[in-house]
Design a binder for these strands. Structure first.
Length: 265
DNA sequence: ATGGCCGCCCTAGGCGGA
């Protein structure tokens, strides 16, 4: 049986519960990974999601910021999380579902200035990505076995993952130092970048459009910040990939669109 | 042409987003 996995930076799960439910009804993923839930666990909208059929949930939230969650139609066989950069912030959660370990990440945005001497948020972001690389790499102790890594990684690595490569080279999310570090994470377990297994590298592909643009759709100054990676043992099972761009235009939208992958056994 | 926008919080301006 196929397994459809979606990832979505929801920018407040309580405010956007209606469009989460709309997405679940219309696209029926087996698993939905959320970031920026901005909700303590005791205020998470469990009831609506339960009624929608997502009766298995692993949530890790805090007040006001960050927060990740994995919602599933199928049992969560094991779940866990790891702390990064020695912080208790809620930026990672994992769940094993149907034998596949799913990692859901919310990588720090990194602030405005791409210089760790002047901006400690940028340093935090770089260190966070380094720690991911070490954890998944040869000396790390991340779980073995078929795995999927999803989330808002806040880095658009390739030239056509941004609307203007040249204009964004010094903008946090597309600087060479960030891209190099993300590529090191990608290499740490020979992860497959699912988006680019389906969409040629020369084709523009985005998952995020700023709220500040007057007309996000017409301006189309997007970035591909949301990613789905799979371990090589899952490569042959990849059967579909989609960025649900339409959701960026829904009522009270998130600035990120949901991204989906379908895996065949 | 990035920012003119968002959402959160001990309700109102500051913080974080990217």
């Amino acid at each position: 049986m196929d397994m459809k996995i979606a990832t979505w930076n929801i920018n407040s799960v309580r405010l956007r519960e209606p469009i989460v439910l709309k997405f679940l009804v219309e696209h029926a993923p087996d698993v939905l990974c959320l970031q920026e839930t901005k909700s303590p666990d005791d205020k998470f909208p469990h009831d609506g999601l339960e009624a929608a059929g997502y009766v298995h949930r692993a949530v890790r939230g805090e007040k006001g910021y960050n927060g990740v969650a994995i919602l599933s139609k199928h049992p969560i066989e094991e779940s866990g999380h790891r702390l990064f950069c020695g912080k208790e912030d809620c930026r990672h959660i994992s769940a094993r579902i149907k034998g596949v370990t799913i990692h859901n990440f919310y990588v720090p945005a990194g602030g405005d200035v791409p210089d760790r001497e002047k901006n400690e948020k940028f340093g935090h972001k770089l260190d966070f990505v380094d720690e991911m690389t070490a954890w998944f790499g040869a000396g790390g102790d991340a779980p073995d076995g078929p795995s999927v890594l999803v989330g808002d990684l806040n880095i658009a690595p390739m030239e056509h993952d941004v609307w203007s490569h040249k204009q964004l080279l010094k903008v946090v999310s597309h600087t060479p130092v960030e891209v190099d570090k993300l590529n090191a994470t990608l290499a740490s377990r020979d992860w497959v970048d699912v988006a680019r297994a389906f969409v040629p590298a020369e084709e523009k592909l985005y998952s995020w459009w700023s709220y500040r643009a007057k007309d996000w759709d017409a301006a189309d100054k997007g970035r591909r910040l949301d990613h789905i990676w799979v371990t090589p043992d899952l490569r042959d099972g990849l059967s579909a990939y989609e960025v649900l761009r339409a959701a960026r235009g829904w009522e009270k939208p998130s600035d990120h669109a949901p991204v989906m992958v379908t895996l065949k056994p």
